[in-house]
Amino acid sequence: MAVLDIALNLLLGLALGTLGGLFGIGGGLIAIPVLGVLFGLDQQLAQGTALVMVVPNVLLAVWRYHQRNRIDLRQAAALAVTSFCFAIVGAYYALSLDAGQMRWAFIVFLLVLALYSALRALLRSAAGSGELKYGWPWLSLLGAWAGALGGLFGVGGAVLATPVLTSIFGASQVVAQGLSLALAIPSTSVTLVTYALHDQVNWLLGLPLAVGGLLSISLGVRLAHSLPESLLRVLFSGFLVVSAVLLALET
C-alpha cells in the first residue's frame, strides 16, 4: 500500500473515530458503507475490515465515557455476557448469507432505527437519567438480541441497544451510549476473530483506519457530552439515514 493511500486511510479513520465517539458506536456503522462505496468491498469483507478499527475504538471510547459519566459495571456485565454469546451465533450465520441480501437487510434495519429515534426526538420525550428502570435480567435479554444483530451486521449491537436503553430503560442518551459501548466490547472482539478466521478482513486497509480512529474518538466523546440530548438524538437519527443511503449506493 502506497504512503498516500495510508495517509488517506488515516484521515478517514480520524473522521470515523470522531463520529464513533459522538454517537457511541465505535465508528463501524458508517465505516461499513464507506468501505463498500470507496473501496468496493463486499458486505462481509467490509464488516470484517471495519471491525479492525471498531474494536480498539470501542475500548478507548468506553474508558472516555466512564471518565465523564461513570458506567455501572454490573449493568455493563449483564449486557456484555449475553452479547458475547449471541454475537458468535450471529457472526457465523452472517458468513453463510448472500452479501446482497445482507446489505439490503442492513439498510432496512438502519432506516427503521432512524425513524424510531427521530420520532422520539420530535415528540420531545422526557430526558433520561443515570438510573435504569429495569435490572439485569432485562439487560441480559437486550444484550442477547443486540449481540446477535451485532454479529450479523458487524456493528457490535450498540446501534440497537442505545435507542432501547433510552426509550424503554429510561437512560439518558450519553448513559445509553456508554453502556452500549460496554456491550460492544466482547461482541465486536469475537466477531472480528470469526471474520478473520474466514479471511474476511483486509488488515492493510483496517489498521490505518484504527490508528486514525484512536486519535480522534476522544473528541467525539467530548462533543457528545457538550450537546443537548434532544439535538444528539436528532443527529443520531440523521447519521443512521446517511449510513443507509451510502449503503444503498453500493447496491
Rank of each mutant, 00 (worst) to 15 (best):
A118E: 07
V245K: 09
G150D: 01
G20N: 02
G36W: 00
A114L: 08
W104H: 12
T251A: 15
L204A: 02
A2F: 00
F236R: 04
L141D: 09
N57T: 07
K133C: 13
L205R: 13
A80C: 11
A50D: 02
L16R: 05
I25P: 01
V89N: 11
I88P: 01
L113V: 09
G100A: 00
E250I: 00
V54S: 03
R103Y: 04
V245L: 15
V190H: 08
L197A: 08
Y92H: 15
G13W: 06
G151K: 05
S129P: 06
Q177N: 07
V62A: 06
V52S: 06
G212V: 01
V211S: 05
V174S: 06
G21E: 06
S83C: 07
A176R: 09
L73T: 12
L115D: 03
L192P: 08
G48S: 04
Q44S: 12
A171F: 14
A7S: 05
Q67F: 02
W136E: 13
R64Y: 04
S187G: 12
D5K: 05
N9M: 08
S96G: 15
L207F: 00
W138L: 15
L111F: 09
A210S: 09
Y65N: 09
A126W: 03
A182N: 01
V174I: 12
T251P: 00
S125L: 15
L97D: 03
D42N: 15
A248C: 05
A176K: 10
V241T: 08
L247G: 01
M53Q: 09
L38A: 12
V55D: 05
Q173S: 12
L4C: 01
D72K: 03
P186L: 05
A61K: 13
L41V: 03
N202Q: 09
R233H: 10
L205N: 00
D72Y: 01
L35T: 00
A77Y: 01
I25D: 01
